[in-house]
């Protein structure tokens, strides 16, 4: 089974700064990390390969850096990585990102299974996986909680609002997985060392058949006008007391004074 897993170098939202003057979030220079849920997609890809043979290619779109997260994906067991890297990719929206990934998957050629996380940890729009499925004219299964392949059919359990749903399809197919599908492995030192021997391809806009005006901010139908910082002010009062009973009573009294219990 030849598998592609798509992942993202996301902004580490817990360490983002705010511009004091404008009250806007600072995106430039914000620290990054692998999008949390992507580790589940990578784990599932590697597990599938271990069970059914084949290869795992990890693909990411990132105009800058991304070396660290690519190494992380390789250390988790992906065989090779494709880095879609071009300065012109900055501020690509979900449609452009999906178009770049779809072009890369076409360029790779024969792929049986394309895995994504249910959404990214920073934006969580959940749009790129199904967009790639549409662009490649493939079926899709989103929010998979469990995935099995019997050599012929791919069966998935999906966690939907109204309950559990079991669906099946034939390969090739796009699947997005939940945070609950598995527990991502921690790579061993040996696996981390071995990444230096693995192939990392770098494809730019031209290699993917895109002109600069078709990608990034210029090529994206959705334009960001601004991102205001959302701050919630909390009182941060540490409730005191000699023992648990006293502490609990002090909290209850404080809540009564706030007028929120009656």
């Amino acid at each position: 089974m030849d598998i592609v897993v798509c992942f993202k170098q996301a902004i580490n939202e817990s360490e983002m700064g705010v511009d004091k003057q404008s009250g806007r979030l600072l995106l430039e220079g914000a620290p990054t990390k692998m999008s949390e849920f992507d580790k589940n997609a990578i784990e599932e890809a590697v597990k599938m390969k271990e069970l059914h043979g084949g290869t795992v290619t990890a693909i990411t779109v990132s105009p800058v850096g991304a070396k660290k997260v690519i190494k992380e994906a390789l250390a988790m067991g992906c065989d090779r990585a494709v880095h879609l890297a071009d300065q012109s990719f900055v501020h690509s929206d979900t449609l452009v990102t999906a178009s770049l990934l779809a072009a890369a998957i076409r360029k790779i050629g024969s792929v049986d299974l394309i895995l994504f996380a249910e959404g990214s940890s920073d934006i969580y729009s959940c749009q790129v996986g199904p967009s790639v499925a549409q662009l490649l004219d493939l079926p899709q299964i989103t929010y998979a909680n469990k995935l099995t392949f019997d050599g012929n059919k791919l069966v998935a359990e999906r966690n939907m609002e109204e309950g559990l749903e079991v669906v099946e399809t034939h390969l090739p197919c796009v699947v997005t997985v939940t945070n609950e599908i598995n527990v991502p492995r921690f790579p061993t030192l040996m696996q981390i060392m071995a990444t230096s021997k693995k192939e990392i391809l770098e494809w730019n806009a031209t290699a993917l058949g895109f002109k600069p005006e078709q990608v990034g901010n210029q090529g994206s139908p959705i334009q960001i006008l601004k991102i205001d910082a959302l701050t919630v002010r909390r009182k941060n009062i540490l409730v005191d007391g000699g023992n648990d009973s006293e502490k609990a009573m002090n909290l209850a009294k404080a809540l009564q004074k706030e007028g929120v219990i009656q």
């Binding site: 817990s14 979030l25 934006i123 334009q223 205001d228």
Partner: peptide
């Protein structure tokens, strides 16, 4: 956006 840290204003072209 950004897990509740930001409110993005967007338009479509």
């Amino acid at each position: 956006a950004y897990a509740g840290k930001g409110l993005a204003t967007l338009k479509s072209i």
